[in-house]
Design a protein around this nucleic acid. Structure first.
Length: 281
DNA sequence: GTCATATGTGGAG
DNA sequence: TCCACCTATGACC
């Protein structure tokens, strides 16, 4: 689940369900129990995301900092019938927020801590611009990209360069811009970067709306191509992510896979040719 | 039952 | 660069 769109969607859902209301805060699994006791019964101010970081604010400039990591989930149920009441927690629920008609359960997160505003500010300051935040400046990220010899596929995943992109958006963005994952950052032109950024804003905003990652253009949807829809745990329609060995939706060549700094990278070697500088070519 | 896997990150060596 | 960690799920014995 967790790339930036997931966290922004979550922030909205949490604010809608709990913002301005007194909430019961608990840690059925126990690892957040001490902090939960300090917040229990207080008013939840609201929730906000920055990249993949989530902050749930409580009075007194206190923030529950959540990072879902690879496997974390934060399920929000805002439709509880007050007659039935909130159900007993199932599994390892690290954090539960609840009132009469809603509850939210956090499981498997890599981080769940009670932070001061100073701690929150430090993390935000270290993060790159987030395409899902209106104030984000793509040129801030560009200053890092244009000076780097690292591959663009690595820079896109570096949360200090830009915040919120994960393995799916990386693969899909590079495909949509016909760019090889190993192309060095300093060989990009600013126009290419800004086009990629604008595309990210559109794709990720759509991801917040739908809760899934869809990146294929109208002409490549299952309906348009007469192919079966993707059946997958995250459900979105994509060009290359986890499609290695299958035919590229555009050219038919088998999609490639290779590890790039510990994460699988997927691309089409025909649609995303290896970059050659003009001096060499 | 065991094992591999997953949209991520941080620490040790 | 490898490894640990957080948890659930599906594949396979």
């Amino acid at each position: 689940m967790p790339e930036g769109h997931t966290l922004h969607r979550l922030a909205g859902d949490l604010t809608a369900a709990f913002g301005g209301r007194r909430v019961a805060v608990s840690s059925p699994q126990g690892r957040f129990a001490e902090s939960a006791a300090l917040l229990d019964g207080e008013v939840l101010v609201g929730a906000e995301a920055w990249g993949k970081q989530l902050f749930v604010e409580f009075p007194g400039e206190r923030f529950v900092h959540v990072h879902l990591g690879l496997i974390g989930k934060f399920d929000v149920h805002a439709d509880v019938d007050p007659e039935d009441g909130v159900p007993a927690p199932v599994g390892a629920v690290r954090l539960r927020l609840a009132h009469d008609t809603a509850y939210a359960d956090l499981r498997g997160a890599s981080a769940c801590d009670l932070w001061t505003s100073a701690q929150r500010d430090a993390v935000v300051a270290a993060a790159g611009p987030d395409p899902l935040r209106v104030e984000a400046d793509p040129l801030l990220a560009w200053e890092r990209v244009r000076r780097s010899r690292l591959p663009i596929g690595a820079l896109l995943m570096d949360q200090s360069v830009l915040a919120g992109v994960g393995n799916v958006y990386r693969a899909e963005l590079l495909f949509r811009h016909r760019m090889h994952p190993l192309r060095p950052g300093h060989t990009l032109r600013v126009g290419q970067w800004l086009a990629m950024w604008d595309d990210l804003v559109v794709l990720m905003t759509e991801g917040v709306r739908t809760g899934r990652i869809d990146t294929v253009r109208a002409e490549h949807t299952p309906e348009a191509m007469g192919r079966p829809p993707r059946v997958d745990d995250h459900g979105g329609e994509v060009y290359v992510y986890r499609r290695h060995g299958q035919p590229c939706l555009v050219c038919g060549r088998r999609v490639s896979i290779e590890e790039l700094r510990g994460r699988n990278s997927y691309w089409c070697s025909r649609c995303q040719p290896v970059f050659r500088s003009r001096a060499v070519g």
